[in-house]
């Protein structure tokens, strides 16, 4: 059994009439980088705030590091950066971390370590209000690292960063992930999740529509056949592999078989007197899958 650091059952949050998070069952395993993927307003931040004990659930349960959300002993093992990084503008970067370290009861020596990790040592003496957005984001990560946490909860940490800053941040997260931390990373950027994460949960309109590895989400590819007449081609391939494996999509035939079935499909079609214009291997992009999964009619199911 893999140990679950985060486990929610039917976790729900209502704001008046609106359901922000709708019976979510999230499972984050020890040692993985888990991507919590969903468009803006899907309910990611609300979920993470519930996991941290900042927001009370309306229904359902959550266990984080084996304890109820907000449990002080568990919080001592969690680092977090939720929504935008927050600081005292009149304090230096280092003093900000010192204040947080006090509350977390971690020794002051951790402050310089954390600054080093995010490459902010040189500017640590400057006021936090003078930092660029990227530096603030990095200082936010440093604050999350102070406790040397087992579990890192990062809410859209690349938001607002320029491409170079994003790349840096992703590398940092990947490094933390391989360094024995478990990371729960929320994002609305598919590419980011694909690059950084081991497993993904997709949330849309408060509903967790899918959870699994990137491979699993993507599903199997198919042979895409453009031929004429299409319905005869459909009949031939259905006879070969069964009708349930064949579908028509955008005036092309999609046959769910292995790639090396292509020559035999081609031969059968030609023998049946069908004009084959093209035949090729097709994998849906994650983008397509993402849009499909987060489409309102799909979520309603």
């Amino acid at each position: 059994m893999t140990e679950l650091l985060v486990r929610t059952d039917d976790l729900t949050k209502r704001y008046g009439e609106r359901i922000a998070v709708d019976h979510i069952g999230l499972q984050v395993r020890r040692g993985e980088v888990y991507g919590f993927l969903g468009p803006n307003g899907a309910g990611k931040t609300t979920t993470l705030r519930m996991l941290l004990g900042l927001v009370r659930a309306s229904a359902g349960t959550a266990r984080v590091l084996g304890a109820a959300p907000g449990n002080p002993a568990a919080l001592a093992r969690i680092g977090m950066l939720v929504e935008s990084p927050a600081f005292y503008p009149y304090l230096s970067g280092r003093d900000n971390l010192r204040v947080f370290a006090r509350y977390a009861k971690v020794p002051g020596s951790k402050v310089d370590e954390a600054l080093e990790t995010v490459d902010l040592t040189e500017r640590a003496k400057d006021r936090a209000s003078s930092y660029s957005l990227g530096m603030k984001q990095r200082l936010g990560v440093a604050a999350a690292l102070l406790k040397d946490p087992e579990l890192l909860i990062l809410d859209e940490p690349t938001n607002g960063l320029d491409p170079a800053g994003m790349a840096d941040m992703r590398m940092l997260i990947r490094r933390l992930g391989t360094g024995g931390h478990t990371v729960l990373l929320s994002s609305h950027l598919l590419g980011e999740v694909q690059q950084v994460c081991d497993r993904v949960g997709v949330i849309s309109q408060g509903v967790l529509v899918r959870q699994g590895t990137v491979r699993e989400l993507r599903g199997h590819g198919s042979l895409r056949v453009v031929a004429e007449p299409l319905d005869e081609a459909n009949a031939v391939t259905a006879r070969m592999f069964g009708a349930e494996r064949v579908s028509v999509h955008e005036s092309a035939l999609h046959v769910s078989v292995d790639e090396d079935a292509a020559p035999s499909v081609n031969r059968e079609l030609v023998l049946a007197g069908i004009a084959v214009r093209s035949i090729g291997w097709h994998e849906r992009s994650l983008e397509e899958i993402f849009f499909e999964m987060t489409a309102p009619e799909e979520v309603a199911k």
Binding site: V82, S84, A86, P89, F100
Partner: peptide, 18 residues
């Protein structure tokens, strides 16, 4: 205003001790 309350409350101390 600075949104630091969420940081304090997730450092570990109970809300009342903050």
């Amino acid at each position: 205003g600075w949104d630091t309350v969420k940081v304090l409350l997730t450092q570990g101390p109970r809300r009342l001790s903050v």
